[in-house]
Structures are given as C-alpha cells and as structure tokens.
Design a protein around this nucleic acid. Sequence first.
DNA 1: TTCTTCTAATGATTTGAATCATATTATTTA
DNA 2: TAAATAATATGATTCAAATCATTAGAAGAA
Lengths: 236, 236
Amino acid sequence: MKKNTIEIPSCSNCGNSKEFFCNLSESEKQLLSDKKGDNFYKKGQVIFYEGNHANGLYCLYDGKVKLTKLGKDGKEQIVRFSKNGDILGYRSLLSDEPYHATATALEDSHICMISKEKFLQVVEQNTKLSLQVIQLLSKDLKGAEQHLIDVAQKTVKERIAESLILLKNTFGYLADGKTININMTRSEIADMAGTSTESTIRTLATLSDENMIALDGKNIIISDLPNLIRCSNTYD
Amino acid sequence: MKKNTIEIPSCSNCGNSKEFFCNLSESEKQLLSDKKGDNFYKKGQVIFYEGNHANGLYCLYDGKVKLTKLGKDGKEQIVRFSKNGDILGYRSLLSDEPYHATATALEDSHICMISKEKFLQVVEQNTKLSLQVIQLLSKDLKGAEQHLIDVAQKTVKERIAESLILLKNTFGYLADGKTININMTRSEIADMAGTSTESTIRTLATLSDENMIALDGKNIIISDLPNLIRCSNTYD
DNA sequence: TTCTTCTAATGATTTGAATCATATTATTTA
DNA sequence: TAAATAATATGATTCAAATCATTAGAAGAA
C-alpha cells in the first residue's frame, strides 16, 4: 500500500459494495490523502472510547471491529460491527457529539484516519457524499430499531440464531463455505444477543444438538442455514 | 394558516428548536410551498404504514404522533415520537426504502406533505439541509441504540420510569407544570417500554405507592422527578 | 514446563415478568 | 340511554432465563 494516496479499501477493493469515496473529485481525494494517519491495532485494542471527543474519521482498511455501549453495571452491549471498507465515527463527527460507542478491534486491524477538518470540508462541498452519509445512517438506524424489537420480543434462542446469521452476513464464511469468518467468545456473543454467557453456551449447545450448527472450539459452523433462519423468526 | 406559503411549524413557532427549513432561500421555500398537501388526521388514524412506499415528506404542524414497528405475533413496539415542528418520513425518502415504521396520530393532528421530488431537489442543491438531515438521523440513531440497551438490560420498573421521563421530555407538562402532556393507554406505555400491559399497570401502581408519580385516570402526574430519574437508572 | 488466568461447560436454584383468569370500571356507538 | 366494546385493575400460576456454584479445558505468561 502506497502512502499519501487515498487508499480507502472500498475503492481499491471492488468486492466491497460500500464505495464511499468514489464520488470524489481528484482534488478532493488529494485533500483527504494528505497527512492521512495510518494505524495498526492489535486484537482487543480500543480505537476510540464512548464519551470521548471525535477528532477524525476512521477508515477500516483491513480487520474487524465491534462497537459496544456500556449498560447497567458495566455490562456491554454490542450495537454494530465494522469490517473491511467500512468507515467509523462519522456519526459523532457530523453531529459534533462525543462518541456514543466504544470501538474495539476483534482481530488485528489496519485503520486509516482522516482529520475532522478535511472530512467536513469535503462533505460540505460535495452533496453526493453527504447523501451517502445519510444512506449509512439510515441503514444503521434501521438496524438498531430492528435489533431493539428483537431484544424486546424474541426469546434467547431466537436471538442467538439471529446473531449467528448476522455474523455470517457481516463477515461471511471461511474458505470451506460454512464456518463463520469471525472468532468471538461466548461472552461476546452474549453481549450481541443481550443475554448471559451461560444462556449463550446452553443455547449454542441446543442449536448444535438440533443440527443447525456445529461447534469446533471457537469456530461456529452453520450446517443448516434455512432451519437456523426459521429458528430466528426473521422475515427480511 | 395561509395556504401556499411554507408554514413549517419549526419556523413559524420559535419555541421550537428544530429549525429545519430556516436555511432555505426564498426560491427554495417557494418551490416547497407550491402544491403542498394539507391533511388532518383524527386520533388513532394512520399517516403511513410500515412497508409502504414513501412518496413525500410529512411535516407535523400540530399534533402528536407515535412511530411503531410490528414485532413477533403482531406485538407493537413504539420506536419514536413526533410532535409539533417535527418532520416525518425523511429516512425512507432519502434512503429510497419502504417505511420501516407505522406512523399513527396520538391525538388530532395537522400534517403537511411535501412531494418527494421537490424535497429531493432542494436537498440535493442545499448542503446545509442535508447536514441537518444528518443531525436528525444521528439523534434518532443515538436514541435507538440507547433504547436498545435499556430494553436489553433494565428491569421493567426502570424502563417504565424512563418511559415516563421520555414522555415528559418529549411532550412537556400541562399548564399545572406536573401532568405529562400526553394521553396514552397502559397498553401503549407497555409498547414503549417493551413489556406487558399488566406489568405496566402494576408498575405504575408501585411508582404511585412510592410517591414518585400520581395517577388520575389517563393523566400521569410526576410528583418527584429526581427520584423517578434515580429509579430509571439513567445518567444522561 | 508449570503457574495463572481466561473461557467453556453443566448442574442447581431463584426470580422477574409473562401469561392466564376474572372483575371492574370507562368509553364508544347503536 | 342502553348495550357493546375497550381499558384498567388484581390475583394466581407458570416459565424463561438470570444467577450462583463448581468443574474442566485452553491459552498466555513467567
């Protein structure tokens, strides 16, 4: 990867649907590329903390990130994920509020940073870009509201099933075409589904007994996706 | 109210903080004002349904509206409210997706409608307006994610207390300065807090026994706000 | 390697809150 | 104004899932 050129992964990597920076003019790209920060985070390291002030836009070049909010008694709730090509922190940047979630690397990640001033400058002169931000926020909002209903109304089993499907849809499969391409602890899956670690372990065992999934250490293999979808009670 | 002039309540009514259309030029205002639809909805009537196609922007001139999503077994979840001066339906309009929630009048409401084409035309040429939409979406997203954590981690009592505080913050008090300025059924409050009607009734009775609120038919009087806030376990 | 710590797995117990079952008011609307 | 319907209220019961408790296995650190 060359320095000082805008190498937003969504542009250089065509497998990625979110072509966030593709509508920029050359001069705009140049502006953003200049003095762009290039950072590496180890698994478990925190990119930014909930409550802290936003000073730039993060572009996830390579890696996986979870966004969590702190709830009662310090219990975490995973609110979203980011993967290759996603941008992070745009909400706080544009609404000029502190980060409302903590971003933590789920595996070693390579993240670029664009300064607040430059990003705002480009957004303000490029309507297409702000419409793209609107699309992103709309998608996040839709996801959050769906998640809300799920947690409020679904059983633990339905939520665990749905969480596995979300993980598969977000991170895809390994080369074997059936193992979910992410390693999370049972406790993290619990934070996702809004349940306890013990219930998560038991429910995963049940889903395995019922042959919808198979467990191999931290690897989760989806052996019967249609049934898992049915089990999750999701219709969209 | 005169016809054919843009009378967005947030502009004509200065008590309202959301001055959504105040950055428009005169020609832009004129464009939006022309052939603007003017509609009246009775309490209980539906303004738009989840899943339907968006064809305009709704401006709530006067009234109160709830936004609900349908969950498991047809159980409703209230995801948001709108009041005087708020705009509705912008998410679906700008992301070009069907409405993700149903909007229902909580009381008789006066709602104007701006056509999709005209609104999009103005948004695309007015960056300030799109930045304002970003602010709105950001606020909605923050609210939804907070709501998610609450439902996932708080007890019914905490959630009911918090719901009452949200209602008070959204709709304010009646002239007496202590009665929440909204009439909702116990079942609707349950849909808000993500619990059952019976639990809502019991919890309201408990809060009343503990002198944090007083109940007078459908009216809910907040008699000890600091204690109610403490009870809701909310720190922001 | 061994020690320590984190993660996973299971069993036993408790509990918050949903559900079921009826009354008792309020509101509609016929 | 009566009849019908919807909303509120309470008690009894059930149940899903959290919590507590303990053991077993993995993974890092010294």
